[in-house]
Amino acid sequence: MSTLCRSRKPALRDPRGSRWWRHHAIPLDVWAHRTGRLEGGWRREATDDPRDRFWVDRLVRWMLRHPILLAVALLLAVVALFTVLLIVGPPVPKG
């Protein structure tokens, strides 16, 4: 092992223990604000805006209007997935 590897400082951390790379979203936020992409409120209702025509936009609008139902649906999906995985069993053969 080289001296450089042994003397390398650990990754920068904030007081809560998160790694420093979470702050890399800041340039994206600055760019979006500078180009006006953050103007206006959340689009919870369909409008004549061409961005409202895609299925993903309809899904996001539904999720924004029904956050509790979304949380329950996600919880039920996780429970169902793990139930199926427990029924199927381990991925390695027994014996």
Score class of each variant (00 low, 15 high):
Met1Leu: 10
Ser2Thr: 15
Leu4Ile: 13
Leu4Ser: 12
Leu4Ala: 11
Leu4Cys: 11
Cys5Pro: 01
Arg6Lys: 15
Arg6Asp: 05
Arg8Thr: 05
Pro10Gly: 04
Pro10Tyr: 03
Arg13Tyr: 06
Arg13Leu: 09
Arg16Thr: 07
Arg16Ser: 08
Gly17Trp: 01
Ser18Asp: 11
Ser18Pro: 01
Arg19Met: 03
Trp21Pro: 00
Arg22Leu: 03
His23Ala: 03
His23Tyr: 11
His23Pro: 01
His24Asp: 06
His24Gln: 07
His24Gly: 06
Ala25Ile: 00
Ile26Tyr: 08
Pro27Asn: 07
Pro27Phe: 03
Asp29Met: 11
Val30Asn: 12
Val30Gln: 15
Ala32Phe: 06
Ala32Gly: 00
His33Leu: 15
His33Phe: 14
Arg34Asn: 14
Arg34Leu: 15
Thr35Ile: 06
Gly36Arg: 05
Gly36Gln: 09
Gly36Met: 08
Gly36Ile: 07
Arg37Lys: 13
Glu39His: 08
Glu39Ala: 15
Arg43Cys: 02
Arg43Trp: 01
Arg43Asp: 01
Arg43Phe: 00
Arg44Gln: 13
Arg44His: 05
Glu45Asn: 03
Glu45Arg: 04
Ala46His: 13
Ala46Leu: 12
Thr47Arg: 03
Thr47Leu: 00
Asp49Thr: 03
Pro50Leu: 03
Arg51Leu: 15
Asp52Ile: 00
Arg53Cys: 08
Arg53Pro: 01
Phe54Gly: 10
Phe54Pro: 00
Phe54Asp: 11
Asp57Asn: 09
Arg58Thr: 06
Leu59Met: 15
Leu59Gly: 14
Val60Pro: 00
Val60Leu: 15
Val60Met: 12
Arg61Leu: 13
Arg61Gly: 02
Met63Val: 08
Leu64His: 13
Arg65Asn: 15
His66Tyr: 15
Pro67Arg: 10
Pro67Ser: 12
Ile68Gly: 11
Ile68Ser: 10
Leu69Ile: 13
Ala71Glu: 07
Val72Trp: 10
Ala73Gly: 10
Leu74Glu: 03
Leu74Ser: 05
Leu75Asn: 08
Leu75Val: 13
Leu75Ile: 06
Leu75Met: 12
Leu76His: 09
Leu76Ser: 13
Ala77Val: 06
Ala77Trp: 08
Val78Ala: 07
Val78Ser: 04
Thr83Glu: 02
Leu85Asn: 08
Leu85Lys: 10
Leu85Ile: 04
Leu86Ile: 00
Val88Asp: 01
Val88His: 04
Gly89Glu: 02
Gly89Ala: 06
Pro90Val: 06
Pro90Cys: 03
Lys94Trp: 08
Gly95Cys: 02
